[in-house]
């Protein structure tokens, strides 16, 4: 079971990194979302895996899973929604403003920037 979770984290990360390195905004956003899954699951898994032991206190139950990573990941999920929304908005604004959804500067623009600063 541990191997499944670990490999799932690895595959999510790999897919996330690959998509994050694409040249258009949309795949980059999806890549970051995949990375978010990977990070959240990773953080969650740091409490180790246990089946059938939710951290809801019950009379007579002694074994509970670690609640702290869950609490941290819960807020992380909500915050990552906020982050995704902001990034999507920025991407959308850039696209609507310039009709271009590249994440990189065009090569000539980049060299122009160098010229100005020098």
């Amino acid at each position: 079971m541990e191997l499944l979770v670990a490999s799932a984290i690895g595959i999510l990360t790999a897919g996330g990194i690959y998509l994050m390195l694409r040249l258009r905004t949309f795949p980059v956003i999806l890549g970051i979302s995949l990375l978010t899954y990977a990070v959240n699951v990773f953080l969650f898994a740091s409490g180790r895996l246990s089946v059938g032991a939710p951290p809801i206190l019950r009379d007579g139950v002694e074994v509970y899973t670690d609640p702290l990573p869950q609490a941290l990941v819960l807020t992380a999920i909500v915050i990552s929604f906020g982050m995704t929304a902001v990034v999507v908005m920025i991407a959308l604004g850039a696209y609507l403003g310039s009709d271009d959804d590249h994440v990189d500067d065009a090569p000539d623009e980049a060299s122009k920037g160098t010229g100005d600063a020098a």
Binding site: L3, I11, A14, Y18
Partner: peptide, 25 residues
């Protein structure tokens, strides 16, 4: 190149996750 980076990153996180999942804190 991107595939290589992605695979390295994936392997790294997988190794890390696997490492602590089989060990106690």
């Amino acid at each position: 190149r991107d595939t290589a980076i992605a695979l390295a990153g994936g392997l790294a996180t997988m190794g890390m996750a696997w490492h602590f999942l089989v060990r106690d804190a």
